[in-house]
Every structure is written in C-alpha cells, then in structure tokens.
Amino acid sequence: MYGGGYIPEEEKRKQQHMEEDPAKLAEFEARIDNGEKIEPHDWMPAEYRKQLIRMIEQHAHSEIIGSLPEGTWITRAPSFKRKMALIAKVQDEIGHGQLLYNAAETLGKSREQMMQDLLTGKSKYSNVFNYPAKTWADVAVIGFLIDAAAIVNQVANSKGSYGPYSRALERICYEESFHLKQGHDAFVALATGTESQRAMLQDAVNRWYRPIIHFFGPSDKDSVHTGKLMRWKVKMMTNDAMRNQFLSSYVPKVWELGLSFPDPKLHKDDNGEWHFSDPNWDEFYQVIKGNGPCNAERLAVRSWVETQHKWIREALFNPNAKYTLPLS
C-alpha cells in the first residue's frame, strides 16, 4: 500500500561516511541522469543499495501489515458487492507484498530475513497501520484516502531509477486505482446515506486525519540526505511535495461531500500550498518506536502466523535434505 521514507537519525549519520570509487560513481550518476534504469547486476553505490532495500522492505511490510486492519472487516462487510471488493483488495495488497519482497530480494536480502526484521521491530512499516479500524467507515476511509495517499507516493516512486522496484510499482499502481475507485464508492455511499452512516463516517475522518497528515513523513525538503536520494532517483518527491499533492486532490473531494476535517487551520494559500495545524510529530516518532495504539497487536498477529504455520514450511522444505544442502 505504501512505500515509506522514514530513516532513523543515527542511520543517516552513519551513511554520510560511505566512500565510493569516484569513476564508478560518476558513471552511475550519468546513467541516472540519462533516465536509464539500474538493474540488479549493475554496479551501484552501497548506500543506494542499502536505501533501496530499506525503502522497498518497508513498503512490502506495509502491504502485509496493512492487510490486517481491513482484513478483519471482510467477514462483516455489509453486502455481496462490498465483501467481494474487500477480499479482492486485501488479496491484492498481499500480492503487492509478494512483488515487493521479490524486488527487495534482487538487492540481496532474503524474504526470511525481512520477515524476521519485521517481527523484531528492526524494520519498519507505515505508521497508519498502527491505528485501529474501528467501524465500517474506517474501511471506507482507508480504501479512499489512505489508498489515495499511497498512490501519490507510489506513482512518484514508479518513476525511480531501480528497475525491479519501478516495474513492481507500475503494476501495483494499476491495481491501486481499483482500490481507490472502490474506496471512493464506499465512502460516497456513507456520505450520502442515513444520518447514522454520515456520523460514522465523520467520526472516522476525524480519527484518520492526523495519521494521514503523518503519512508522508515530516518535512524533509532541507535535508542533505533527501537531496542525495533524489539525485539518485531513489526518492522522487519530497515528503512535503507529496503531502501537498495529496491534500490538493482529496481535501476538496471530502469537503464537497459535506464532511469536515478536525483542523480549523487546514487551507490552501494563493500559491497552491496547503497549511495545517501542528500534527504533533512526537506522536509520529512514538508510533515508529512501537508505541502506537496497535503496534503490539499487529506484530503479535504476524508472529502468530509465523509460529502457527512453522510445521508447514518445515514439511515443504523437505526435511530429509535439510542438513546436506548448502544454505545459500
């Protein structure tokens, strides 16, 4: 659902010191300037590889963990149409995870290792999935606004320089457009429905407003680090630019339906720039650290999956060959 851009501070400092062969680096950067795609066996700076792994892996985890809050609503979806759309959507998200793990594996990190890092909390995933989906209206808000935000991010990154990631994202964006359509449809049904449906939707919009503002991450337009990632087309837009694009496209659509956001300062100025109240970035960092409302639950479910099915993976691995085959 989402390709994240969060880099912990201490990691940023470490990365400043990686040295590369200047000739190779120049050649690499020239290819990027040319609009060429970098492929798995091409030379690439260590930091490029590392940042891509981090980013694709975070994105993959977001798809898998992101399937959980919506997944719990499949059994409760209120009609055949909504039920079918929701199962198909959640299934797509799992498929996105699969595509992205494959893309990350081309850079040298195994799916098993990524899963392990997810469970230990070493790898991150999008903060939005650490908030609960309390009512059916949350499913509509996620399907419409969270998927829309993800699309802004993913469309931008699909033009990035790493071939396997960019191709995975193209396919993902194609499927995401259906999610957005179905999410919008479910959202409008509630917005134009009975009084209790509208109230349920407004409540969900209120609760999701801050996580949505947080979604694109804190401002990074002045960061040296971002400059380099953009130079290498790992990151295609700053967090602020993506957030602004999202707000421009979707805030008016929500307002048109007679709904509001719980922020009196939310407005667009004459230059097309959106302003909003301080969204409490402390909360953002707390959730990343694992202190959000659902972090523990999400990881508990994922680790249940890992232990519950261990016997299956062991059986598939062919136990008789296990000790004689080389591990890599």
């Binding site: 898998i64 059994t75 199962i87 799992i94 793990y101 519950q308 099915h309």
Partner: peptide
C-alpha cells in the same frame, strides 16, 4: 475468508 492475511505463505 478469515484466513486472508494469515496464510502460511504469501
């Protein structure tokens, strides 16, 4: 459908 998201492999 309760297995969606919880299967043994993706």
């Amino acid at each position: 459908s309760t297995w969606t998201g919880l299967g043994p492999t993706l």
